[in-house]
Amino acid sequence: DVEEQIRRLEEVLKKNQPVTWNGTTYTDPNEIKKVIEELRK
C-alpha cells in the first residue's frame, strides 16, 4: 500500500533517521522527500 509506505517514510523523516529504500540508504531529508514524491506519482 503506497499510502502506508508514504506514512512510514514521513514518520522516519520527522525523527531525522536514515531510510533504506530499495537497497539504498538515504540520510538526507531532501532525498527522503524525493522518494516520497516519487511514491505519490
Rank of each mutant, 00 (worst) to 15 (best):
17 Q>P: 05
3 E>W: 15
36 I>E: 00
13 L>K: 00
24 T>P: 01
41 K>F: 10
28 D>N: 07
21 W>Q: 03
20 T>S: 10
41 K>D: 08
10 E>G: 04
30 N>I: 14
25 T>Q: 09
18 P>S: 14
33 K>T: 07
20 T>Q: 12
14 K>V: 12
32 I>Y: 02
37 E>F: 04
28 D>Q: 03
4 E>M: 08
31 E>V: 08
10 E>I: 09
31 E>W: 03
1 D>Y: 13
7 R>W: 07
38 E>Y: 09
26 Y>I: 14
7 R>L: 13
7 R>H: 07
14 K>S: 15
39 L>M: 06
41 K>G: 11
9 L>W: 07
34 K>T: 06
26 Y>V: 04
41 K>V: 10
21 W>C: 03
29 P>H: 10
9 L>S: 00
38 E>P: 00
12 V>K: 15
37 E>A: 12
10 E>Y: 08
7 R>G: 05
12 V>A: 15
40 R>Y: 11
23 G>S: 04
28 D>R: 04
17 Q>F: 15
26 Y>A: 01
27 T>K: 03
40 R>Q: 07
14 K>I: 12
40 R>W: 09
6 I>P: 02
5 Q>T: 14
2 V>H: 06
29 P>V: 08
15 K>S: 15
21 W>D: 02
20 T>Y: 14
19 V>H: 04
3 E>K: 10
20 T>W: 13
30 N>M: 13
37 E>H: 06
38 E>F: 11
14 K>Q: 13
22 N>M: 13
21 W>K: 01
10 E>T: 08
16 N>V: 04
34 K>S: 08
36 I>R: 00
41 K>Q: 14
20 T>F: 12
29 P>S: 09
28 D>I: 02
2 V>R: 06
40 R>K: 12
12 V>R: 15
8 R>H: 14
39 L>W: 03
23 G>L: 02
29 P>C: 05
8 R>K: 14
4 E>D: 11
19 V>L: 13
7 R>D: 05
33 K>S: 09
27 T>V: 12
22 N>D: 11
18 P>H: 13
16 N>T: 06
7 R>T: 09
15 K>M: 11
28 D>G: 05
30 N>L: 12
38 E>V: 04
27 T>Y: 13
33 K>L: 13
41 K>L: 14
13 L>C: 03
21 W>N: 02
37 E>I: 05
16 N>Y: 06
27 T>D: 07
9 L>A: 01
33 K>C: 04
29 P>M: 15
37 E>V: 05
4 E>T: 09
2 V>T: 05
3 E>A: 11
23 G>V: 00
13 L>Y: 04
33 K>R: 15
36 I>L: 11
5 Q>P: 02
18 P>W: 10
34 K>A: 12
24 T>Q: 14
24 T>V: 15
20 T>E: 13
7 R>A: 13
37 E>C: 07
1 D>W: 15
26 Y>D: 00
25 T>K: 07
4 E>K: 06
24 T>H: 14
29 P>K: 08
4 E>W: 10
1 D>I: 10
30 N>F: 12
25 T>L: 15
18 P>C: 07
8 R>V: 14
20 T>P: 02
39 L>D: 00
6 I>F: 03
15 K>F: 09
22 N>L: 10
18 P>D: 09
32 I>Q: 01
18 P>K: 11
3 E>M: 12
33 K>M: 11
12 V>S: 15
25 T>I: 14
16 N>Q: 10
9 L>N: 00
8 R>T: 13
12 V>D: 14
15 K>P: 02
9 L>Q: 00
8 R>E: 13
34 K>E: 07
25 T>A: 06
5 Q>I: 15
6 I>T: 02
40 R>V: 10
15 K>L: 15
10 E>A: 05
24 T>N: 13
39 L>Y: 03
1 D>P: 14
29 P>R: 05
24 T>S: 08
34 K>V: 07
2 V>E: 03
3 E>F: 14
3 E>R: 13
35 V>W: 03
36 I>G: 00
31 E>M: 07
5 Q>N: 09
41 K>N: 15
41 K>T: 12
10 E>L: 10
39 L>S: 01
36 I>A: 01
18 P>N: 06
15 K>A: 13
37 E>Q: 08
26 Y>P: 01
10 E>Q: 08
31 E>R: 03
38 E>I: 07
13 L>N: 02
5 Q>E: 13
18 P>I: 13
41 K>R: 09
27 T>W: 13
41 K>H: 13
1 D>G: 11
18 P>Y: 07
13 L>T: 02
5 Q>Y: 09
41 K>P: 04
22 N>E: 11
35 V>D: 01
38 E>G: 07
3 E>Q: 14
21 W>S: 01
1 D>Q: 06
35 V>G: 00
6 I>V: 05
21 W>V: 11
37 E>K: 04
14 K>Y: 12
26 Y>R: 00
18 P>T: 12
19 V>S: 03
13 L>A: 10
25 T>G: 03
29 P>D: 04
11 E>M: 10
41 K>Y: 11
15 K>E: 09
12 V>H: 15
4 E>Q: 06
29 P>A: 09
22 N>S: 04
28 D>Y: 03
28 D>L: 05
14 K>W: 11
5 Q>F: 12
35 V>F: 12
31 E>K: 05
28 D>A: 05
5 Q>S: 10
3 E>D: 12
32 I>G: 01
30 N>V: 14
31 E>N: 04
36 I>H: 00
31 E>I: 07
34 K>L: 11
2 V>K: 08
11 E>P: 00
31 E>G: 04
30 N>K: 11
17 Q>G: 11
38 E>D: 14
24 T>I: 15
2 V>A: 06
37 E>G: 03
3 E>L: 15
4 E>I: 08
19 V>E: 02
7 R>P: 00
